[in-house]
Design a binder for these strands. Structure first.
Lengths: 213, 213
DNA sequence: GGATAGTGGAAAGCACTACTATCCATAATG
DNA sequence: CATTATGGATAGTAGTGCTTTCCACTATCC
């Protein structure tokens, strides 16, 4: 197929497709003559993936380019790709170390110890968590940190299900892509479910008060 | 205190504080003379809240302005404020209705039915969920949708804990702010925990294989 | 009282992101 | 053979989140 059909089938405007190719997000089409190229379903799938990560996952194009570049490089071991993904998926905290952040890091270490989680406190996810805890305290909502274990209880089965889902993949590229999609879109899926559950919970709690939550 | 001290205590540069005042995110200081104003702890807290929502929550300044404006307006009933928050927290999906979105809406309605959740399928959270499901299918990862119930099981206790946390507030403004903070930063907190749990789960699953996940 | 630093307010400028528009020579299509 | 589409390049654009610069004025220190 040529770029027009690719555009129609993916819903992405032609100039935008060209832009993605320029930016290295999408491989160029196979040239059939000096100014004609053909695209296949791989291009279409890649385009849909880009739009999902961009629109729903909220990743930046540069983050997507980096992640997809690692996915496409067969020389990259799987865990390196996931490292890239983990770094680029995290909103990239400022590096100012205040007292709240020091406390928060201790909280994270204590949580890992308490739950017996086999993870380093200073891995990207641990740093992200510490950043959130510090922000909560700085914003005057340190009390929210008490919910850590409730949240962690909920995160465990979700993480197991995620791993089980990606574990069904055999091809390296499929596996890596599943992890990226699962991590990014799974986050959005849980967030939406949590807000739906808020609506339900407050409908139950304030049954006759006209919807407080 | 004057703007310099406010800046030092909050870590936000003076021109940025001025900018936030201009944009209506932060109320102006109380003028003590034509070109001197004084700020109090309320300003400091508000600044920390803005930075938390911006840096950790990933909200845009315009979304923050809208949410805070509703929080500050005592005439706004609580549930209206939450409506504003819900709308602005969601990444604002495109409005293109494809076959995947129609299927996804049915999935959401079925989920609510199945679980007995008291929420409308077309509320902001429901639309957000449908958007995610549709994006998963479009990206070729419709299988991930099978995890919906695992995720929903996890979301329920989290939502109950959230409501319990905000339920301890008495003053209207405290309550509303708690909901906003809880919704936005709670999302970030769960996301980080989930990724930490991924690290743990894959350390267990691939114990001696050099860290596959 | 005089130098220095800080202040409120306004305006302009800037870096970045994600496109969008325009142009061109060439190629496919009816 | 006219119309439309294509690949490729360059330039322009809208929005976001600041940052810079300017000004007259005020506070502070010696």
């Amino acid at each position: 197929m040529r770029i027009g059909e690719l555009s129609r089938r993916s819903g992405v405007p032609v100039p935008t497709v060209k832009y993605y190719v320029r930016e290295g997000l999408l491989p160029p089409g196979r040239l059939t003559s000096p100014n004609q190229a053909s695209y296949d379903e791989g291009h279409e799938n890649r385009l849909r993936l880009i739009r999902a990560l961009l629109d729903v996952g909220g990743l930046s194009l540069s983050a997507i380019a980096e992640v997809l570049g690692a996915v496409d490089d067969p020389a990259q071991p799987v865990h390196k790709v996931l490292g890239v993904a983990a770094k680029r998926i995290t909103p990239a905290e400022g590096d100012e170390v205040g007292p709240e952040l020091i406390d928060a890091r201790e909280d994270v270490a204590a949580l890992l110890e308490r739950r017996g989680w086999r993870a380093e406190a200073d891995c990207p996810a641990g740093q992200a968590l510490a950043g959130v805890l510090a922000a909560l305290r700085r914003a005057g909502h340190g009390g929210f940190v008490e919910l850590l274990d409730v949240y962690a209880d909920a995160a465990e089965p979700v993480a197991r299900a995620d791993l089980d889902y990606v574990g069904r993949r055999v091809a390296r590229e499929d596996l890596v892509e599943s992890v990226v999609v699962g991590t990014v879109l799974g986050e959005a899926m849980f967030a939406a479910l949590r807000r739906l559950a808020h609506v339900d919970a407050s409908a139950r709690a304030y049954r006759d008060e006209g919807g407080q939550g």
